[in-house]
Design a binder for these strands. Structure first.
Length: 474
RNA sequence: GCCCCCGUCGUCUAGCCUGGCCUAGGACGCCGGCCUUUCACGCCGGAAACGCGGGUUCAAAUCCCGCCGGGGGUGCCA
């Protein structure tokens, strides 16, 4: 058999982890682990202008949060010596040459091409400079970049693991820059050196890299490296079917994390964008299951629109039935705390969540939903007071207060029993009791089950809220 | 402009390779009903798609050609 499978995720630290990149990372990770292979994280920070250390830290943090782990870690900015060595090889073998063209000159070339409506390619002006001319220009201190010499009219083809056969003619692109005039190597070059040196067997990335692939294959050949397999994933689109970007709203992993999404749910949902399980029907998968069943052959080759509604639904599934209660409690506490709720009693939080976890889909929704369980007092809107009077709430509420002090119900069932007794005594229908209770205890007309609230809320809070209403009604 | 990729319900998709089992299946969303102390949850039901035009074939979502549509690339960004 071939060598051990090894994949990598290679983000550039120029912003938050984007959902599209996250999915690429996940697919690369799943493919590697499925094949008992290695997974590498490599920070592509050759562009000093745009790369930021704090972005790198957030990237790593978000990746870990999603549940990814890697066997090796690299930073390209620390490998410039290695790249220089390989640039020299290309220079020596005649595969690359110095280019003294200025950005202005190139810009002019490009404009002219546009005017004439012909496809732009670098003219190759500096390609045939004699060694003497090169020497002279260098001595004059002219800044220069290094370009790769692209052979003419050659068809570069590869069998893409997702897209199938792809063929691109070298005439479609000109000699491209591999080292900038400031001495830093560019993406198309370092990616090849790194992937080859690090033993990457499968390059999995977004389809926006398809045009780069022939350039990279040429470099693999020129350096005598083995060419890896390529798998280009379709992009993720926004509602308007253009590439998912900030215009479409929240597109970073961080944003969903802060809104109270579960990493397992986001991981799971992202997998279903562009990949479908071999067995039909099932949609909820743990990371371990995904590792077991993931295969690139089941990746769809057409772009997918990101659908927040479905993500939200799936998050709800994780909150109400997939995650263990203890885990949910741990994740909920920071959100409740941030809202100013008292969460010192973890058992109380646990009890509340055990009854209410099936009624919200994100942790930020939870914060709203569970307000009556955690605040000291509730505000009752003016419009509800007349409603309370019409309901003859005074009688029911005072009877309720009496009964709850006497029976101290501790489960929703006991509360229901107690309410039924009140109904019987007062000869009223259920809503006649429940609605005043709801308003008195939550200040709202909708929300979680009042039986639950009464069963778990400390008695003194219940008394205080009811008494406040009775006082005003009398 | 040029190059490349893609095209099944509103959305994610199964089916396409190896034509008939497809009166095209599932999921989210939507609509209706049930449950019910309200909103959710849950349960039941419903509307909803093979981009268009030609071929090949007894038979095409599935194979071939053309068109149209969408996306990506076209950097001394990655």
């Amino acid at each position: 058999m071939g060598k051990k499978v090894k994949t990598r995720f290679a983000p550039s630290p120029t912003g938050y982890l984007h959902l599209g990149n996250a999915r690429t990372a996940i697919f690369s990770y799943l493919f590697a682990r499925h094949n008992n292979g290695g997974f590498i994280l490599r920070i592509e920070d050759t562009d000093k202008e745009r790369s930021k250390k704090e972005y790198e830290e957030m990237l790593i943090d978000d990746l870990r949060w999603l549940g990814l782990d890697w066997d090796e870690f690299y930073r390209q900015s620390e490998r410039f010596d290695i790249y220089r060595e390989y640039v020299n090889k290309l220079l020596e073998s005649g595969h690359a040459y110095p280019c003294f063209c200025t950005p202005e000159e190139l810009e002019k070339e490009r404009e002219e091409a546009k005017k004439k409506e012909i496809p732009y390619r670098y003219s190759g002006k500096c390609r045939d400079l004699t060694p003497e001319e090169v020497e002279k220009l260098k001595r004059e201190g002219k800044p220069f970049a290094i370009r790769f010499k692209v052979p003419e009219n050659r068809v570069i083809a590869w069998k893409d693991l997702v897209k199938g056969s792809i063929a691109i003619n070298t005439d479609d692109f000109g000699d491209f820059v591999i080292v900038r005039s400031d001495g830093s190597p560019t993406y198309n070059f370092v990616v090849v050196v790194d992937d080859a040196l690090m033993g990457i067997t499968h390059v999995i990335r977004g389809e926006d890299h398809i045009p780069n692939t022939p350039k990279q294959i040429l470099i693999y050949e020129a350096l005598g490296f083995n060419i890896p397999e390529f798998a280009h994933l379709p992009v993720i689109l926004g509602e308007d079917r253009s590439k998912l970007s900030k215009r479409h709203g929240a597109v970073s992993v961080r944003a969903y994390r802060e809104e109270g999404y579960m990493p397992e749910a986001l991981f799971n949902y992202l997998c279903l964008l562009g990949w479908s399980p071999p067995e039909e029907g099932k949609e909820i998968f743990s990371k371990e299951e995904l590792i077991k069943i993931f295969d690139l052959k089941d990746v769809n080759d057409s772009p997918a629109v990101f659908n927040k509604d479905k993500l939200k639904w799936m998050n709800g599934v994780y909150i109400r039935e997939v995650l263990p209660l203890e885990v949910l409690v741990e994740r909920a506490i920071p959100f409740l705390e941030r809202a100013g709720y008292d969460v010192s009693d973890k058992e109380y939080v646990k009890k509340v969540l055990s009854y209410t976890r099936d009624s919200f889909e994100t942790l930020s929704e939870m914060v709203e939903r569970l307000r009556p369980f955690f605040v000291d007092d509730v505000e009752i809107d003016d419009e509800y007071w007349s409603f309370l009077e019409d309901m003859k709430a005074y009688d029911t509420l005072s009877l309720f207060l009496e009964k709850i002090r006497e029976k101290k119900p501790e489960t929703p069932e006991e509360v229901k029993k107690l309410v039924k007794e009140i109904q019987k005594t007062l000869k009223v229908k259920p809503p006649q009791v429940w609605k005043p209770l709801r308003i008195a205890l939550t200040g709202e007309l909708e929300g979680v089950g009042i039986d639950i609230l009464i069963a778990v809320l400390p008695l003194e809070k219940i008394e205080r809220r009811i008494e406040k209403v009775l006082k005003r009604l009398s």
